[in-house]
Amino acid sequence: MIRAAATLSSVLLLLGISGCSVYSGAVNTFGPDKPVSDLAVNTDGELMLSKEPPPFCPAPVADSFEEVDQAMPAAPIYKQLYFIFDSDELTEQSRRDAEAIYQAVLERDAPEVLVTGHTDTSGSVKLNDALSKRRAEAVREDLIEIGVKPDTIRTFHKGESEPLIDTGDGVKELRNRRVEINVR
């Protein structure tokens, strides 16, 4: 009898030491698809986030929400695509980025795409207005070509009025020659 009690209490003690009773109630600041950690702020190097379940303790609460998680929409995508000077042609790097974004659009249920064209401050306001419109239209046409429904794409153009980098007038700046693309 005493021996059984001793065994039981040592099992309970072990469970306590393992920390599992603490884990399940703890708040983990790593998100499933948008990892935001308080730790990252103080870390210099690249942060690797494990996608595996925690090795020490199971997370029992998560199981009952598995079904609802399947209905959670994917987070919207916000990306910039950059253009060659005075043209509606994407830079080589951006052309590759565009492929990945277009693919993401096709993989979504009921996708909507918002495309906003911009220019740098080199050239007249009027020319830049037209150029930013052409850039947005070029991305729109690419999207339609790969099979995105035209009525789910909305285009806007801002000319040189909303630079990403504040340069003053008459400055060529790659980072301002862009479309902002928002996939929802």
Binding site: V27, G31, P32, A62
Partner: peptide
């Protein structure tokens, strides 16, 4: 109700 906070997700059952 059972409430869980996992990462940035708030869940309630």
């Amino acid at each position: 109700s059972a409430v869980a906070i996992r990462g940035n997700t708030f869940s309630v059952k």
